[in-house]
Design a protein around this nucleic acid. Structure first.
Length: 304
RNA sequence: CGCGGGAUAGAGCAGCCCGGUAGCUCGUCAGGCUCAUAACCUGAAGGUCGUUGGUUCAAAUCCUUCUCCCGCAA
């Protein structure tokens, strides 16, 4: 099958690699290289790099709304477009430009968690299951008919990173299956009454608010690991928290109950023992390692 | 050239501002104590202080080259 691929971040690369292996990827669309990272170097997207490595033409339009961009699709003779975390809105004209339409890989079991950050929101909310949905793109966000779904459990060990990687692989498999059987699958509509939205992660969410319960904060820490990661501030320094567990202790919210042999911080309900931490300028390490040479003063407060 | 922090024993840190014998906590090893232990006591090994050059009687410390790591920001 001749396919146009559209995607941007790491989540999209397993899907693209699978398509390259199994189909004829005629063109790849991704976001333009942008100044990012230390030194503001111009960085190509992960999808961009994979495409280049495989000698596939890459296009990086800033919008697909103009007619020039849309006419390109007509001349490619592609049967379908596969979209994975592309980051641009597809206008109706693009959606209709392909025989099989535009197929999207979404990292949740739709209609739950439509939107930008389904992986993190599922963990944060305490869902016991996550998964991948392959659906048809329609003008309404993540609301198209579904071809296939595959679930996977969320455990106490699941982090945003681990779930992301697992779902990306599942997504690649599932998309492969759907494309193979596209003639035989009748897509089913989503139940609009069950739809929820996963709003994108905001900067101010990264700061841990110890006025929340320990159980919630623990989930959030896992959801935000490794990116964008949560943190607290203590005596002018910022400490990223990568892993923690809930412990049965009480104190005023944000109070350091133990700072020498372990780091335990009181929350509104319960307390958190920080297990993996990253001091600014340093790499992430087990809290026990940091505490060999560093000490948090007991009974001082962190956070706000 | 977006802003900033860091590199010191196997690990984590202090020392640097104000140059003058290389420190702390832990780990390792040996011995001791104990019914016993991740506990306790005694002792030991382990460092060209990331790299280059300079200043100086003297550099972990001040200036400089490069490499690597990280935070912010996007």
């Amino acid at each position: 099958m001749n396919i146009v691929f559209m995607g941007t971040p790491d989540f999209a690369t397993p899907v693209l690699e699978r398509l390259i292996a199994e189909h004829n990827v005629v063109s790849v669309y991704t976001k333009a290289p942008s100044q990012s990272g230390r030194g503001f170097e111009l960085k190509k997207t992960p999808v961009h790099l994979i495409a280049e490595k495989n000698g596939i033409p890459v296009k990086t339009p800033t919008t697909l709304k103009d007619e020039v961009a849309q006419k390109e699709f007509a001349t490619m003779g592609a049967d379908a477009a596969v979209v994975a975390a592309y980051g641009l809105i597809l206008p109706q004209a693009v959606i209709e430009a392909f025989k099989f339409g535009c197929l999207n890989v979404h990292a949740s079991l739709l209609p739950r968690w439509r939107g930008a950050a389904p992986i993190q929101r599922a963990i944060e909310a305490g869902d016991e299951t996550s998964g991948v949905t392959i659906m048809q793109i329609v003008s309404k966000l993540d609301a198209g008919k579904m071809y296939a779904k595959k679930a996977m459990p969320i455990t106490n060990e699941t982090t945003g990173g681990s779930l992301h990687d697992a779902l990306a692989k599942i997504g690649a498999d599932l998309m492969s299956d759907v494309l193979k059987n596209i003639h035989d699958i009748e897509p089913v509509a989503q139940d609009e009454n069950l739809a929820t939205y996963a709003k994108k992660l905001e900067k101010d969410e990264e700061k841990l608010d110890f006025n929340m319960s320990a159980a919630y904060l623990e989930r959030k820490i896992r959801a935000f690991n490794p990116y964008p990661a949560t943190y607290f501030e203590h005596q002018g320094e910022r400490f990223k928290v990568l892993r923690a567990k809930v412990v049965e202790k009480t104190g005023k919210a944000g109070e350091i109950l133990e700072g020498k042999n372990a780091l335990i911080i009181a929350c509104k309900e319960g307390a958190l023992e920080v297990l993996e931490i990253q001091r600014q300028g340093k790499r992430a390490m087990a809290t026990s390692e940091l505490l060999r040479g560093f000490c948090f003063e007991q009974n001082t407060f962190v956070g706000a």
